[in-house]
Lab assay of single mutants.
Amino acid sequence: MTEYKLVVVGAGGVGKSALTIQLIQNHFVDEYDPTIEDSYRKQVVIDGETCLLDILDTAGQEEYSAMRDQYMRTGEGFLCVFAINNTKSFEDIHHYREQIKRVKDSEDVPMVLVGNKCDLPSRTVDTKQAQDLARSYGIPFIETSAKTRQGVDDAFYTLVREIRKHKEKMSKDGKKKKKKSKTKCVIM
Score class of each variant (00 low, 15 high):
Tyr4Asp: 02
Val160Ala: 03
Glu107Ala: 11
Thr74Gln: 13
Gly15Met: 03
Thr158Gly: 07
Phe90His: 03
Val109Leu: 04
Asp47Met: 02
Asp69Gln: 12
Leu6Pro: 03
Asp57Glu: 00
Ser145Trp: 05
Pro121Gly: 13
Val103His: 13
Pro121Val: 11
Asp33Met: 01
Arg123Phe: 08
Ser106Glu: 07
Ala155Glu: 06
Gly174Thr: 07
Cys51Ala: 08
Ser145Ile: 06
Leu6Asp: 03
Thr87Asn: 09
Ala83Tyr: 13
Pro121Asn: 13
Val7Thr: 02
Thr148Ser: 05
Val81Met: 12
Ser106Gln: 12
Asp47Ile: 00
Phe90Gly: 09
Ala155Pro: 09
Lys184Leu: 04
Val8Tyr: 01
Gln25Val: 14
Ser136Phe: 10
Glu76Gln: 14
Arg135Ser: 09
Ser122Phe: 07
Ala134Glu: 05
Ala59Asp: 04
Leu133Asp: 04
Ala11Gln: 06
Asp108Gly: 07
Tyr71Lys: 06
Asp119Met: 14
Lys175Thr: 12
Ser122Lys: 09
Lys104Trp: 09
Ile142Leu: 04
Thr124Gly: 11
Leu53Lys: 13
Ser39Trp: 13
Met67Val: 06
Gly77Glu: 00
Lys175Asp: 06
Gln43Lys: 12
Asp132Thr: 05
Ser122His: 11
Thr20Met: 04
Asp57Phe: 00
Lys172Ala: 10
Glu62Asn: 08
Glu37Arg: 00
Ile142Asn: 05
Ala83Ser: 15
Phe90Tyr: 11
Leu120Tyr: 15
Val9Ser: 06
Asp38Pro: 01
Ile24Ser: 03
Ile21Leu: 15
Lys101Ala: 10
Arg102Asp: 12
Tyr157Gln: 10
Val125Gln: 11
Gln150Tyr: 05
Cys185Trp: 08
Arg102Asn: 12
Val109His: 01
Val114Lys: 00
Asp92Ala: 06
Val160Asp: 06
Gln129Tyr: 11
Thr50Leu: 11
Gly151Asp: 10
Leu56Ile: 02
Asn26Arg: 09
Glu31Ala: 11
Glu91Ile: 06
Thr183Gly: 07
Met111Asn: 00
Leu6Asn: 03
Leu159Cys: 06
Glu107Thr: 13
Arg68Glu: 02
Thr50Ala: 09
Gly115Trp: 08
Asp153Pro: 08
Asn116Arg: 00
Gln129Arg: 07
Cys80Asp: 02
Ala130His: 06
Ala18Tyr: 00
Leu19Gln: 11
Thr20Cys: 03
Arg135Lys: 12
Asp47Glu: 06
Tyr71Pro: 05
Asp47Ser: 04
Val152Leu: 12
Thr124Cys: 11
His27Leu: 14
Asp57His: 00
Val9Cys: 02
Ile100Asn: 02
Lys175Phe: 11
Glu63Ser: 04
Ala134Asp: 03
Asp126Gly: 08
Asp126Asn: 10
Lys172Phe: 12
Met72Ala: 11
Thr35Arg: 15
Val9Tyr: 06
Lys128Arg: 06
Ser17Gly: 01
Glu37Gly: 00
Ile142Phe: 07
Ser136Ala: 12
Cys80Glu: 00
Lys42Ala: 02
Gln61Asp: 04
Met170Ile: 08
Thr20Leu: 05
Glu63Ile: 01
Met111Cys: 07
Gln99Glu: 14
Glu63Ala: 02
Phe28Asp: 00
Glu37Phe: 03
Asn86Gln: 04
Asp108Phe: 11
Phe78Ile: 13
Tyr137Leu: 13
Glu3Met: 06
Glu98His: 02
Leu133Tyr: 07
Val81Trp: 01
Asp38Trp: 01
Phe82Cys: 13
Arg123Ile: 06
Val29Gly: 02
Val125Thr: 11
Asp38Gln: 00
Leu23Gln: 14
Arg123Trp: 05
Asp54Ile: 00
Phe28Cys: 05
Val9Ile: 11
Asp154Glu: 11
Val114Gly: 00
Gly77Gln: 00
Ala11Val: 08
Thr124Pro: 10
Thr127Lys: 06
Asp105Asn: 10
Ile187Pro: 14
Thr35Trp: 15
Ala155His: 11
Ala11Met: 12
Asp69Cys: 02
Val8Asp: 03
Glu162Arg: 05
Ala66Glu: 10
Lys167Ile: 07
Ala59Trp: 06
Gly75Leu: 04
Asp108Leu: 07
Gln150Glu: 07
Leu159Val: 11
Cys118Pro: 10
Lys178His: 09
Arg164Asp: 12
Val160Tyr: 06
Lys172Thr: 14
Lys128Asp: 06
Tyr137Asn: 07
Leu133Ile: 06
Asp69Phe: 01
Leu133Gly: 03
Gly174Trp: 02
Phe90Ile: 14
Tyr157Leu: 10
Ala83Asn: 15
Val29Arg: 01
His166Gly: 11
His166Met: 10
Ser17Glu: 01
Gln61Glu: 11
Gly77Lys: 01
Phe82Pro: 03
Ser106Arg: 13
His95Ser: 13
Tyr157Trp: 07
Leu159Trp: 01
Val160Arg: 05
Val81Asn: 04
Val8Arg: 01
Leu52Pro: 01
Val112Ala: 03
Val81Asp: 04
Ala11Asp: 13
Ala134Arg: 11
Arg41Trp: 00
Asp173Arg: 12
Gly77Asp: 00
Ile93Ser: 02
Met188Trp: 08
Asp54Gly: 01
Lys180Tyr: 04
Val44Cys: 10
Asn26Ala: 12
Met72Lys: 02
Ile84Tyr: 15
Pro34Glu: 12
Met111Ser: 00
Ser145Glu: 15
Ile163Ala: 09
Leu23Glu: 14
Lys88Gly: 12
Glu76Trp: 14
Lys175Met: 05
Ile21Asp: 03
Val45Lys: 08
Leu79Gln: 00
Ile21Val: 03
Gly12Asn: 11
Ile187Gly: 12
Ile84Glu: 15
Asp153Ile: 09
Leu133Phe: 05
Ser39Asn: 10
Asp30His: 10
Tyr4Ile: 13
Gln70Val: 14
Val9Ala: 04
Val29Trp: 04
Asp33Gly: 13
Ile55Ser: 15
Arg68Ile: 02
Arg149Met: 10
Arg68Gly: 03
Lys178Ile: 08
Ala130Met: 11
Ser181Thr: 08
Arg68Leu: 02
Ala66Ser: 11
Tyr71Met: 12
Ile21Lys: 01
Asp30Gly: 06
Thr124Phe: 08
Arg149Ser: 09
Lys42Glu: 02
Glu91Trp: 04
Arg73Glu: 10
Ser145Leu: 03
Leu133Thr: 07
Thr183His: 02
Thr2Ser: 07
Ser65Pro: 02
Val125Lys: 09
Gln131Cys: 10
Glu98Gln: 05
Arg97Leu: 15
Glu162Met: 07
Leu23Phe: 09
Gly151Thr: 12
Ser17Trp: 00
Glu63Thr: 04
Glu162Val: 03
Ala18Cys: 03
Gly12Glu: 04
Thr87Ala: 10
Asn26Tyr: 04
Gln131His: 07
Val152Asn: 08
Asp119Tyr: 12
Ser145Tyr: 12
Leu79Met: 08
Ile55Cys: 13
Gly138Leu: 01
Glu31Gly: 10
Phe156Ala: 14
Val45Asp: 11
